[in-house]
């Protein structure tokens, strides 16, 4: 995994609460055996008409959303299915960070393992972001802070190990395999 120390981009807002992973990538696109190309179908049914034309009022289709790499979403983002295809699709599309007041457990874990920053902020900061779409933000992973355009700095919680893996570009399987001796002893010690 590539090391990520910080991200700077404008924001695009999807204020709806409880955006589930079926919305992010509908199940019919999960027949793939690859991680690539899922961005084409990101938010498919919200994003496209039945004939495949983009829906003009969908948040990501608006002209001002083009090139935005930070998605600010309503509370409880990524609930539902454990499909890792959801963060793969977001990354493949070009989203590098998601921000919400709450991010569902499995989606958050999947996101961080793929280098998609999953940032949980307080309601006040979230409210400000929703009121100011297109804001240029800096998300600093090393400091675990978010810098708003007016210079305010907000810290966000992130698991120490996930943060370490992100900034060092460490893949967790490599770390886990360093414990193979302990795993073997554990197996021998059990009935």
């Amino acid at each position: 995994m590539q090391a990520i120390k910080s991200i700077r981009s404008r924001t695009v807002n999807m204020p709806a609460k409880d955006i589930d992973t079926d919305q992010i990538i509908p199940a019919r696109f999960l027949t793939t055996t690859s991680r690539e190309g899922l961005g084409d179908n990101l938010f498919h049914d919200l994003r496209f008409e039945a004939d495949g034309a983009p829906k003009p009022d969908f948040e990501l289709n608006r002209p001002e959303a083009q090139g935005c790499e930070i998605l600010v979403a309503g509370n409880n983002l990524g609930c539902g299915s454990s499909r890792e295809h959801a963060p793969w699709a977001l990354l493949d599309y070009g989203i590098r960070a998601v921000i919400s007041t709450e991010i569902a457990d499995i989606f958050r874990s999947n996101s961080l393992k793929n280098g998609l920053l999953a940032v949980v902020v307080d309601e006040e900061t979230h409210g400000w972001l929703l009121a100011h779409p297109g804001s240029e933000l800096e998300i600093d992973v090393v400091q675990s802070t978010l810098t708003l355009p007016d210079g305010r700095v907000v810290s966000y919680p992130i698991d120490a190990f996930a943060r370490y893996c992100l900034i060092e570009g460490i893949d967790q399987l490599g770390y886990l395999r360093q414990n193979l001796d302990a795993i073997a002893s554990f197996e021998e010690s059990r009935p």
Binding site: E84, I106, K113, F161, L173, Y175, I183
Partner: peptide, 16 residues
């Protein structure tokens, strides 16, 4: 779990 974690369990029988 996600697919990355499926890989972790296949390879090590463990999760972080």
């Amino acid at each position: 779990i996600g697919t990355t974690e499926v890989g972790h369990v296949l390879a090590t029988q463990c999760l972080l």
